[in-house]
């Protein structure tokens, strides 16, 4: 009965629809990729199979210091923010999952509420806060590379803000990962005379590696993709992140240089797509745990 022809026929249609759907989903990306591999000004006249692939736009981008710098800024701030978030959440998540203390539930629910509060709501105070904090830092001579103290402070501030934005979600993810680990494992260590921190480090953390990965990767990609916060907090051209630079590029675009813009867009999506393909499970788990708790 299971193998009735009607059922097979139905499956056939489902697969066909899904294949078409997937092609539609990939289409904008593939079209951008094809565009980016053509010399400027040919429009669709160029045939990749006949005339070969043109890498010129990518070469041009990689030899444009400003673009490389944008990517580097994105990498530094996304990585820094995600590392801080993961560290803070690994610690706090443990307290929420295993220790009893006053105000525990209240803080947890507050964090959950804040998770629902998007960055745009506190955009203006954050903008002002940045201005005021940065005014305290002298500009002066370059201290790291060609960046002066104020510019370094500006980058650090963006990292701190990214780490804060990831925390409400990350704490809940880590809490539910810890909570899923049997208490006996930890109790055995505690009985052997380990302190709670040692138990966290040697027993819980290794077991919740998938959770740490989920928090780190989702936050890295969120930070990498962020536009609003970076466009608001970054105060000098040298510090612009890739999304901010990309929108600038589109807005300044004159004539038909869409091929170059598409190449820039393609390069920007590589880390996100790459990490996702390598660690799909971590992303799925992160999103689900973050939304429903454990």
């Amino acid at each position: 009965m299971n193998r009735s022809p009607i059922r097979w026929w139905k499956h056939y249609w489902t697969y066909l629809l899904l294949v078409i759907l997937c092609m539609a989903f990939l289409f904008p990306i593939i079209y951008a990729l094809v565009t980016s591999l053509q010399p400027t000004g040919f429009g669709l006249a160029q045939n990749l199979f006949r005339d070969g692939v043109y890498w010129g736009h990518y070469e041009q981008l990689l030899s444009t210091p400003r673009y490389v710098r944008n990517l580097l800024n994105s990498a530094i701030t996304s990585l820094g923010g995600a590392l801080l978030t993961t560290t803070f959440c690994a610690l706090a998540g443990y307290a929420f999952a295993r220790l009893r203390f006053q105000g525990r539930r209240g803080v947890l629910i507050l964090l959950l509420g804040l998770m629902m509060l998007p960055g745009i709501v506190n955009l203006i105070p954050l903008y002002r806060l940045t201005s005021e904090l940065l005014r305290l830092v002298p500009t002066g001579a370059a201290i790291i590379g060609d960046l002066n103290a104020r510019q370094v402070a500006n980058l650090l501030l963006l990292i701190a803000v990214y780490s804060a934005f990831g925390i409400p979600f990350g704490v809940w993810v880590m809490k539910s990962f810890y909570a899923a680990i049997p208490r006996e494992l930890e109790d055995a260590a505690l009985v052997d005379g380990a302190t709670p921190l040692q138990a966290l480090r040697h027993v819980l953390l290794p077991l919740s590696l998938p959770g740490l990965m989920a928090v780190f990767l989702t936050n890295f990609v969120f930070n990498w993709n962020d536009f609003v916060t970076a466009s608001l907090l970054i105060r000098s051209d040298e510090l612009k992140t890739a999304t901010v630079g990309l929108l600038d590029f589109q807005n300044q675009l004159t004539g038909n240089n869409s091929e170059l813009l598409n190449a820039a867009a393609i390069m920007m999506m590589l880390p996100g797509i790459g990490l996702f393909l390598l660690a799909r499970k971590a992303f799925f788990q992160g999103f689900i745990e973050g939304a429903f708790k454990g």
Binding site: P28, I29, N225, F227, T243, A265, M269, G272, F276
Partner: peptide, 8 residues
């Protein structure tokens, strides 16, 4: 697509 920045 969910992995892309909304700007991209």
């Amino acid at each position: 697509p969910w992995m892309l920045s909304d700007i991209v």
